[in-house]
Amino acid sequence: MALSIVHRATGIALYVGTLLLAWWLIAAASGPSAYASVQAFTGSFFGKLIVFGYTWALMHHMLSGIRHFVWDLGYGFKANEREALTWAALIGGIVLTVLIWIIAYAIGGGR
């Protein structure tokens, strides 16, 4: 498995995605019209796609990062353990992303 490059790619995506988080907070601090334009974006198909991608990048990067913590501590270096950790990060990231979006839809009918 060559998943370390995915860790790096999701990291770069999250770096750019921080702009979305900053825009959202600035809009909330600015007023109703600015906030409405953020909601118009996050409510659009393209916006939802971006936020969904951002959610997955965050979840995958977190789990993949935990995998790196395990290695930093000196565990999980056997071939089968490496494979297991990598698959856990890959599948776990997708599962958590879908779970978060199910909850989001249950609460507010999606963003």
């Binding site: 109703p32 906030y35 409405a36 977190m62 990062g65 609460i107 507010g108 999606g110 963003r111």
Partner: peptide, 23 residues
């Protein structure tokens, strides 16, 4: 990693709210 659960709860709480509620 420690903060992710509270942060997600906050963000999910804000889903679908208007400006006044979110602010």
């Amino acid at each position: 990693t420690l903060l992710i659960v509270p942060v997600l709860v906050v963000i999910l709480t804000l889903v679908g709210r208007n400006h006044a509620g979110a602010a």
